[in-house]
Simulated scan of single mutants.
Amino acid sequence: MSNRKLTWRHLKALHQLYVSKRTEAKITDNAYIENVLMVQKKIIKYKAGNIKILEANPGFTAFYQQYFEADYLRYETFLREQNLESDARRRYTEDDIQTLMFIAGQKEELVQNLSTLRTFSSEIFKGQGSKYLEKKPGLKDAVCKILGIADFPEKDPKTLQWRFVVDTLNPQIVVLCENIAHLKNPWNAREHNIELWYVGGNNIGIIDFIDPGKLRLPIYYCCDWDFDGLSIYSRIKEKMKYKQHDLNLLIPNTYEVSLPIDSPHHSSRWDFNKRLSGLKQEDFSNEAIDLIERLIQDNKWIEEESLDLLGLLRITN
């Protein structure tokens, strides 16, 4: 349900519907609420004779409990504990709140390697662009409050190499992630004893310092299926060879999530003049090569965030 695109205002209103069976909040501006919850599932309706009031139909309670309640309570508790305003006036998106939770969890690492506002925005609020926090001063204030800083520095540190880890008490496998999307929503991974590491871009240097004890565990790599993401996989795979350990690539199990190569905020491009765009063919299975060739032929890519991490691990194993 990552496509629901709800804000905190929407979530507050849905919770009110759950508790009071009605709400006067104006939330039909959200396509998911209007098209899915009202039209398709018919679990929300306008009050008879008064379109300013929404009411819960039979089925809403069970649906809310399954898909919304845990998230709402998790977000509400976090905002309250961080002394951030949690009323409906705050227009945080779900991704904003999950990112704030990620920032709180990685506070020490972020403060030690504090970047400029635009670098921070580009890397931590992935996919929103480098000016995202500049355009959302309320969100920027929340970030500064969590980090305990007055403002961001004017220049990036000479060596910017973040090491983000989502620990679990009894890890059974380790997944190295090119992007931080899966680390922002770590609850399922923890429930399944999966430890997540962010090793995207220039952060692959942290592989040199990986805990030797972790090498006893199966290690997988989850990435964007574009030239940059798969190139990084090869670089990490080479580093792992020096440690006498293999790296397993998680292969998407659906092509439906593929995107045009010129998607917003996406800069990686295929090289049509080279075999497999210049990627090291020996690093990939026949199944992976087939998918890469199809992506190159269609000039498409697959975003890591769209992949069902648990589903891919089940298929792989």
Rank of each mutant, 00 (worst) to 15 (best):
T99Q: 08
D95Y: 02
Y72Q: 09
N253H: 14
P137T: 13
E24V: 11
P153L: 12
K107F: 01
G129E: 09
K45I: 00
I103N: 04
A62K: 11
Y242F: 13
I103C: 07
F152W: 10
N273W: 00
I315W: 11
S258M: 14
R89G: 10
H10W: 04
Q66W: 00
Q161R: 11
A288R: 05
E69R: 10
I210T: 08
I146L: 05
I180F: 04
E293H: 06
A25V: 05
P157E: 12
L259F: 01
D95H: 03
K300F: 00
I44T: 00
K241N: 12
Y75L: 07
P186Y: 01
Y67N: 15
D95M: 04
F78C: 11
S20K: 15
F63V: 05
N83A: 07
K136S: 10
A181H: 05
M240E: 07
E293W: 02
K52V: 02
L17S: 05
K21L: 12
W270P: 01
W225Y: 15
D96V: 10
S263M: 03
V165Y: 03
K5I: 04
R235L: 08
D224I: 06
Y64W: 06
Q172S: 13
Q82F: 05
I232G: 00
G129N: 07
P137R: 12
L276S: 06
Y67K: 15
P252I: 14
N203F: 00
I146T: 08
W197N: 10
L313W: 01
N248F: 11
N185K: 08
L79G: 03
D141L: 14
G278E: 15
S122G: 06
F102P: 10
D211P: 00
N273C: 08
R80D: 10
E134R: 07
L147V: 09
A70W: 01
Y255N: 06
L139Y: 09
Q82A: 15
N273A: 10
T28Y: 08
G105N: 09
E109P: 01
Q112I: 02
Q98A: 07
N3I: 11
C223M: 05
F78N: 07
Y72D: 12
F209H: 12
R118P: 02
F68D: 15
E108L: 08
K135T: 09
V199T: 15
G148T: 10
V166A: 04
W8G: 11
N203R: 08
P171Q: 03
R80Y: 02
S130Q: 13
N57M: 15
L110K: 12
I236H: 03
H10V: 08
I251W: 00
D246C: 07
E154R: 12
F272R: 06
I302C: 03
F152T: 12
P218G: 09
T116Y: 09
L84D: 03
Y72V: 12
N185L: 05
L147G: 04
L169F: 01
N185E: 13
L169K: 11
T119W: 02
K107N: 08
R190N: 04
F60V: 14
R314Q: 11
T93H: 07
Y220C: 02
I232R: 01
A31M: 13
D298P: 00
